[in-house]
Each structure stands twice: as structure tokens, then as C-alpha cells.
Amino acid sequence: MDIKGEYHIACERQKVWDALNDPEMLRKCIPGCESLEMDAENQLRARITAIIGPVKSSFDTRISLQNLNPPESYTLTGESKAGAAGFGRGSAEVQLRETEGQTQLRYVAKFQVGGKLAQVGSRLVLGATRKMADEFFGNFSRELDPSALRIDLDSSESRASSGIPQRTWKAAALAVLALLIWWFLIR
């Protein structure tokens, strides 16, 4: 399942790019992020508390940045394991385009679940991921530009958005995993 999003930020592209690569900025914007550290070049370690319904759980997660093409694009990948229940794996391609001194942020994210988790329901995963992405992007764009605009690409898949998706992405993956485990166990 793909999740796409696009955002317009009244900021130069370089600034958006820098913000996307600033651990402190990301920490502030990822919903539930308690800590985020740079382990190595383009390797991040985050501790994120996911809250969905009755679930409130913290996860350690590793995120890596690949295909870096500053200040234009990169790919974000992350993976979490949930023991016997399965795994979650995500990636997001983020693109920044400059238009008249403003920046267009576009992302396409993919999320896969495997093992028993995969039986649980892709729509719920999509819903939870989109929600987290929305929240993250909203936070991020407001930090840079209080009047940033979210653009709907199409009716169903477009809500989230671009720039920060990587982080978002990861946070979303974690929340989704928690939700899935819980869902799977309860039903």
C-alpha cells in the first residue's frame, strides 16, 4: 500500500532540507518521540511512544537515510520486529521541489507487514499510518511556516505529506505495529 502526500511550505528548499536532516527538529515533530540520536552518518536511533486507542507502548527503532541527493530527495527506510507476531518494514521517498522561493514537499511511502500481522488488516495499517504522517507533517510544516498548505493529491491516499515523511514514517510504522499486535491478540 502506498501513502502519498504533498505540502507547500513558504520556505527555501535548502531550509526545508536542513530541517529534514536536523535530529532536534525531527524529534520535536514526530508524534510521541522521546529521544532521537544520530548513531552514525545517516543512521538514527529513536525511542517513540505510540498511542493508539488503549495502546501506549514505547519502541526503539532504527532509521536510515539512503539515496541522498541534497537538497532534492532521499529515501528513508526503517524496520521493526514484533517477535513471533511478525514484522513491519517501511520506506518513504521524499522529494523537494523549489517553486518561486517556496518548497513543494512530496512523498511516497510504502509499508509492509509480514507474518501473522499481515492477516490483521491493511486498511487499519493505512489509516494509522496516514494519521501519524498527517500529525508529523502538520507539526513539521508549522515549525517552518505557520501557514503551510497541505495539498490533497487525490481523495483517498493523499493526506500525509512529504518532507518529513521519513521520520513520520518510522513513527507511523511503530504505532501501527503496536496497534496490530493489540488488534491481533484481542480479536
Binding site: 486507542g53 488503549p54 495502546v55 501506549k56 507502548s57 503496536a178 499486535i181 493489540w182 491478540l185 484481542i186
Partner: peptide
């Protein structure tokens, strides 16, 4: 009815 199973699975820790 939802909170207790969630706590038993250690997915919530109030």
C-alpha cells in the same frame, strides 16, 4: 473490556 486485555498484553502501562 478493552483496557484490561491491553494491559495484560503489556501494550499499556498506566
Amino acid at each position: 473490556m478493552t483496557l484490561l486485555p491491553t494491559m495484560k498484553f503489556r501494550l499499556a502501562r498506566p
